[in-house]
Simulated assay, not measured.
Amino acid sequence: MSNLRVLDPAFGENFESALRRLIPASMFEGDQQLKMRIDVTENDKAYTVKADIPGVKKDDIEVQVDANLVSIKAETKSEKQERGDGDRVLRSERCFGTVARTFSLGQDVDSSGVQARYADGVLTLELPKKSPADARRIAIQ
């Protein structure tokens, strides 16, 4: 579910830099600040997911696991800015809102053993794999 940006090689790398000079940076940035970047690793027994969610309180993160589908949702809330007399905001780059990621894994997860930790802006999920049902030979009558 990642967004890939593909540029036509005929224009070269200079095309993007020329566009950045002509068009305000805010048009390029859009909601980039609200993207959740994740790493997923796997071993024989479990998947490990690390999601960067800086600036979010632990209570504002929601994780759901349904079979092999994992959903992470987080909400950053706006802090009330106190301005003194005559102060004005020159630039504000901190974004507030909801960010979510949903992805599927190659094998179902044992939801009873899922562990989640959140520290230093990184959510770490330990998702144990559900053992596949034992194959059984069916007697034909």
Rank of each mutant, 00 (worst) to 15 (best):
A46P: 00
V56D: 04
D59G: 10
I53Q: 03
G55I: 01
E79Y: 09
A67E: 11
Q64S: 15
K80R: 13
D60G: 07
T41I: 09
E79D: 14
V56N: 06
E79M: 11
K80P: 02
S78G: 06
I38R: 10
I61E: 08
L34I: 00
D31R: 09
P54R: 10
D31Y: 02
F15H: 11
Y47S: 04
V65Y: 06
A67C: 00
L19P: 01
L69V: 06
K73D: 07
E16A: 13
K73Y: 03
R37C: 02
G55Y: 04
A18W: 09
E29K: 13
A51V: 12
Q32H: 07
I38M: 07
Q32D: 12
P54H: 09
P54K: 09
M27H: 02
V65F: 02
N14Y: 10
N14R: 14
D52S: 14
S17Q: 10
V65N: 05
A18N: 13
F15Y: 15
S78N: 10
Q32V: 01
D60W: 05
E42T: 14
S17D: 07
E29H: 09
R37N: 13
E62Q: 15
R37D: 12
N14P: 01
T76G: 10
E16V: 14
V63W: 05
E42I: 05
I72R: 06
K58A: 13
